[in-house]
Amino acid sequence: LILKPAHETTNEEWDSVFNVNVRGVWLGIRAFVPLMKGIGASIINISSIYGIVGAPSAAAYIASKGAVRLLTKSCAVDLIRFGIRVNSIHPGVIDTPMTKDLLHGDAETRKAIMGATLFDRPCQPSEVSKAVLFLASDESSFVHGAELVVDGGYTAN
């Protein structure tokens, strides 16, 4: 994770983040669509709350997650004719190895990373996977081009 404002981010850092977060999603879609045309498939892209709101010192990450958000919407428009639904999930802070040091370190760092989350805890990976299962299921058959936010109320505050 590159934690820098835009004006301090190098070309290489910017490209590295976009290659993983945007190009990876695009390549997945490109590979998936020819195999799934006409069978009622669902694409679920993982973005972030930081694809919806800004935060300090994470310009490349935030811009890349915003790109995933809008790539999802563009694909939703293009792919509905093939029976492919396309949605995105926007998790808040998830308790994973990537965030372990931030969440389980000192109280000041934890407070900063948790930000405006209304629950006094980070999201668990299983909570995101349940959102994925919903969007992949027939229970979400009329959900298309949507942003499912799983953030403990962060974006509501």
Rank of each mutant, 00 (worst) to 15 (best):
154 Y>I: 00
153 G>F: 14
7 H>R: 06
44 I>D: 05
22 V>E: 13
121 R>I: 00
55 A>C: 12
110 R>E: 13
146 A>R: 02
25 V>E: 09
40 G>C: 12
103 L>G: 06
138 D>G: 13
113 I>E: 07
41 A>T: 11
41 A>R: 01
34 P>I: 02
67 A>Q: 08
123 C>F: 00
143 V>Q: 04
34 P>A: 02
104 H>E: 03
16 S>Y: 06
52 I>K: 11
76 A>T: 03
17 V>T: 07
146 A>V: 02
56 P>K: 13
59 A>E: 04
104 H>V: 07
35 L>S: 05
143 V>Y: 04
62 I>D: 01
48 S>R: 02
128 V>S: 03
56 P>A: 04
22 V>L: 15
91 P>Q: 03
38 G>T: 03
72 T>H: 11
143 V>N: 03
32 F>M: 06
113 I>D: 00
98 M>A: 14
49 I>G: 10
122 P>C: 09
28 G>E: 10
9 T>S: 14
52 I>A: 00
14 W>Y: 07
109 T>L: 02
132 V>T: 08
127 E>S: 13
66 G>T: 05
75 C>Y: 10
82 F>P: 02
28 G>W: 00
149 V>F: 14
120 D>E: 15
43 I>Q: 06
149 V>D: 10
25 V>R: 10
115 G>C: 10
101 D>N: 13
109 T>I: 08
79 L>Q: 05
66 G>H: 14
76 A>G: 11
156 A>H: 02
149 V>A: 08
41 A>M: 08
152 G>W: 05
103 L>R: 09
120 D>I: 04
45 N>C: 14
39 I>E: 14
131 A>T: 08
103 L>F: 07
117 T>P: 03
24 G>L: 07
83 G>H: 10
149 V>E: 07
103 L>C: 09
133 L>G: 13
74 S>N: 12
98 M>N: 05
71 L>N: 07
152 G>H: 07
61 Y>N: 10
100 K>P: 00
17 V>M: 12
103 L>Y: 03
102 L>T: 08
124 Q>T: 09
53 V>A: 04
18 F>G: 04
129 S>K: 04
75 C>R: 01
26 W>P: 04
